[in-house]
Amino acid sequence: MFETRSRASRIVLQVLVTLMVLPFLFPLIVMVQGSLAGQGWENYRTVLSQPELPLFFRNSVIIALITIALVLAATMLAAFAFSKLWLRGREVFFWLLLAALTLPEVILLTPMFSISLQLGLYDTYLSVILPLAALQIPFTVLLARTFMNGIPDGLFEAARIDGATTWQSFLHVILPLTRPIAAAIVVLTLITTWNDYLLPLVFLQSPETQTITMLPQFFVGQFSNDQTKVLAAAVITALPEIIAYLCLQKLFERGLAAGALK
């Protein structure tokens, strides 16, 4: 975006961004230091050798993948409708959806619990996936709709004139252009799902279904709190998310090229 023709201005920009990023880096360094305090790398080995780890990891992956698929599909369709289709009461429904964003999780627990019991979902993946998706969708729809508003209506109408159905033009015209926001939604949903603590705690009872956020409980008791291993567990838990973010990097960029399509 910024153009830096001279060598000097390029260096200035580089120094500027480095300075800006330092306050973000500082707590991370302290954290990693903390995870190596005491027994050093042994902390990581202890965390990695927890017998439940592979199971918890698998459960988190399953829950995250299904939630992401649900959220992405529902979001893209809904955002498309809210942005490009003229439906009666469109704005009303959009705002009804947004209002759903506002209640804190703690407050929703009791009603959600009785619902999941009645539906027989308690202690299954779905008892976590459905509330997670339900709480995430309003947020992602808002983002995706904003993004789709930025796509010229002309593109969509041109496709319609060429004889494409609404469905076809959504699939072949709109969807490819939304890759950057889709990537953002995948990343953000992954973070929410992967890091959620309260829902798995309350809804998943047996160790066979519990998630990776339950890992630190082995190092924190009533009157004990092994911070070094909690931090090591946090580093290990964060790695898959960082890797996923890096893998999706290209999608964020590809939007630039797609924008030139018109």
Partner: peptide, 29 residues
């Protein structure tokens, strides 16, 4: 976002540093 869309060295590194706090649970930090 503007700077990292510009031509800059080690862009990925900056992105990671800014991104990582988002994924760390506040309970841990």
């Amino acid at each position: 976002a503007v700077i990292l869309h510009s031509r800059i060295r080690l862009g990925v590194l900056y992105k990671i540093i800014i991104f990582v706090p988002v994924v760390l649970a506040p309970a841990v930090m």
